[in-house]
């Protein structure tokens, strides 16, 4: 019985308790919302997952590093609960909700520990309960950290996908490609635009590349710089770039801000830019019925 051996430190008592009551704790935790949500199919699986967490906690307790989030003993917890937290995050739970669910594991296990003592109000018993409370608090931090990491990864991945999706390069004609830019042109975005445009120039063997900024809300000096860099890079590869879709309001801003677009070739609309590119390649477009008989 723990209270008989006063020499044992609280973390050691907690560790021994976790080891002895492993089965009971796991059975109780398996019914907690966190495990119920994730292991919807099999309760046995939930119990097994709970046992892994109990074992890990016992190991951390015996090492005495109850408040050390980075201690090696938490590695299996990170792995197990981290995956569960990710599952929950994907299902739409916020890190705060997940943390709340982990906090919900504390009640049942504290209750079991208190029941171990004939008098749970002795200083030693209280010390042991406090140690377990600390340990459960650290567990909550570990899970929350893992959940936040998973979220950050998810957001970054989505941001990247959005960047790529938002910048298609279209072949308009033999030897002419265009990128319709929509939305704000920041540094990350313009890098991707530049890369995909240059790749398209190689793939399509394009001589002309049109950057259409009809969908770009504002052009400041930074955006202008991005545009000029793209034009310069395309030229180094032997393609001529045309910036089209400069709306009157944007043209005014450009002039008012004193932005020098330098030697960048501009056209009012995408159609004008295409017409320029075609005429430079000696391609003439005319109505089929002009001077020809009806089919």
């Amino acid at each position: 019985m723990p209270e008989q051996d006063v020499a044992e430190s609280a973390p050691q008592v907690v560790s021994a308790f976790l080891e002895q009551r492993r089965e009971q704790i796991a059975q109780r935790w398996a019914d907690a919302p966190l495990f119920r949500w994730v292991f919807t199919v099999s309760r046995d699986e939930a119990v097994e997952a709970c046992k892994l967490v109990v074992d890990a906690l016992s190991e951390v307790a015996v090492s005495g590093r109850l408040e050390d989030v980075a201690t090696a003993g938490f590695a299996p917890v990170r792995d197990q609960l981290g995956r569960m937290a990710q599952t929950r995050a994907r299902a739409g739970s916020t890190p705060a909700q997940i943390a709340g669910e982990v906090a919900g594991l504390r009640g049942p296990v504290i209750e079991l520990l208190r029941a171990e003592f004939t008098d749970p109000d002795t200083p030693h018993a209280q010390e042991c309960v406090l140690a377990l409370t600390l340990l459960m608090g650290t567990l909550r931090l570990v899970v929350m950290e893992t959940a936040l990491d998973a979220n950050a990864d998810l957001i970054e991945r989505q941001r990247q996908q959005l960047l790529e999706v938002a910048t298609p390069v279209i072949k308009l004609w033999e030897g002419t490609v265009a990128v319709p830019l929509i939305g704000t042109l920041d540094s990350a975005r313009s890098q991707i635009v530049m890369e995909s445009l240059l790749e398209a120039i190689v793939d399509q063997r394009a001589r002309y590349a049109i950057l259409d900024i009809t969908g770009v809300p504002t052009v400041d000096s930074l955006v202008a710089q991005h545009l000029m860099k793209t034009v310069a890079a395309a030229r180094l590869m032997g393609a001529e770039c045309i910036v089209s879709g400069i709306r009157p309001a944007i043209a005014q801003t450009i002039v008012q801000l004193g932005i020098d677009l330098g030697s960048v070739l501009t056209r009012a609309s995408l159609a004008d830019a295409l017409a320029y590119a075609l005429s430079r390649q000696g391609i003439e477009v005319s109505r089929a019925d002009a001077g020809a008989s009806a089919r």
Binding site: A75, R78, D79, G82, R83, E145, T146, D149, A150, D153, E156, R157, Q160
Partner: peptide
Amino acid sequence: TQVPSSRPGAG
């Protein structure tokens, strides 16, 4: 800067 395609599980 790019997102590594196979990032071993966070942590």
